[in-house]
Simulated assay, not measured.
Amino acid sequence: MRIILSRKGFDSAAGGCPNPILPDGRLVPLPIPDSLSPIRYQDICHDEHNIGLLVNQLTKGKLTKSDGAHLDPDLVSTHYPRSHHWRPLLGQTGAAQGHLHKQGVSVGDIFLFFGVFQSIHRVFPNRRKHSTGTEKPTKQRQASGRKQWHFDTQQPKRHIIWGWMQVGQILQIDELGESDLPWARYHPHFYRGKDPNNTLYLASNKLNIPGEFPNLPGSGTFQYASKERILTAPDSLLTQWQLPTWWYPDSGKSPLSYHHNPERWKLFKDRVLLKAAARGQEFVLDCDDYPEALPWLAKLVQTELATSNPELSIKKALKE
């Protein structure tokens, strides 16, 4: 089996800003812009938040509510109107899909999605400097009470793992018949035209990890940031990652793809520091060389299940 660290969501190149962390700590991964997609930002919701409003305010109007959104991976049923039989899914093509194919990614392998996140808060627009050096809203804006979302520049940007998906099925879109997968036809990868590399990954229903709990969901999102899923090391540059020691590629182990240069890795007694590649979407780890990898991943999902559903213990989940 393999774990794929998959870079998804807004960044400085795609979208022009980080993904937001709400004031209550919730992570909101934003779909990147896509002019070919039939999905509009205003059509997507994250709990009580309309993504169109968030995107418009956080990009300072560079993107609008009516712009096309590349909702991919698409992991949460309530984020967008669904057809019957909908399943979580991911599309990939181009060089990134070529890399996944070269690495032998297949059914049973697990994507861990990560992106760059930064905290946001609501402030009055058109703030102006006072003699004290602090910024305060104009009286007109303060009276209207129309606060807008802005990034909190006092908070760091960090790479954070925000979702997972185990591959249950792999399909080539160009090989599908017109009546195949009617529930998936909204997905942006159906609007790319002919492309023999255009690939769909459909999620498994349950997370199938040998020796681990059998009834964990095959896909989902992590609602909040946690220490275990923050990749960026404390007080470090965005791409300076801190990982458990077992990630270190000892002699004979195949390193995380795109990270074969030994100078990227530094092993300490209690952690590994990795200078992560700034480019590339898909980083593949062969779990045969790292027996700790799958239990580590299962624990991430188990913890999410327990904390996001306090009334649902792991024991109860096992009985379902």
Results as ranks from 00 to 15, higher is better:
I4N: 02
G9H: 11
S12F: 07
G15T: 06
D24G: 09
P29S: 05
P29D: 05
P31R: 02
D34H: 02
I39G: 10
D43L: 12
I44K: 03
C45Y: 13
G61C: 12
K62R: 15
S66G: 05
G68E: 08
A69G: 03
A69K: 07
L71T: 10
D72L: 08
P73R: 09
R82V: 08
H85K: 15
R87D: 00
L90T: 08
L90Q: 12
Q92K: 05
Q92N: 11
F113H: 12
F114H: 15
F117L: 05
H121R: 14
V123P: 00
F124W: 15
P125W: 10
N126V: 09
R128P: 00
H130G: 12
G133Y: 02
T134I: 11
E135A: 07
P137V: 08
R141T: 08
G145S: 04
K147R: 15
Q148F: 03
F151P: 00
T153Q: 12
Q155D: 01
Q155Y: 00
P156Q: 01
R158N: 01
W162L: 05
L171R: 12
Q172F: 06
G177W: 06
G177I: 09
E178W: 04
E178M: 13
W183I: 01
Y191V: 06
Y191D: 02
R192G: 07
K194E: 13
K194T: 13
K194G: 03
N197A: 11
N198G: 09
L200Y: 04
L200F: 08
L200A: 13
L207R: 09
P210V: 04
G218N: 05
T232Y: 00
D235S: 09
S236T: 00
L238K: 04
T239Q: 07
Q242E: 05
T245G: 08
P249V: 07
G252T: 04
L256V: 06
H260Y: 09
N261L: 12
E263A: 13
L273S: 00
A276C: 04
A277D: 15
G280M: 06
E282R: 10
E282F: 07
F283H: 15
E292N: 03
W296V: 10
L297M: 06
L297C: 11
K299R: 14
Q302I: 09
S308V: 08
N309A: 13
I314G: 07
A317G: 07
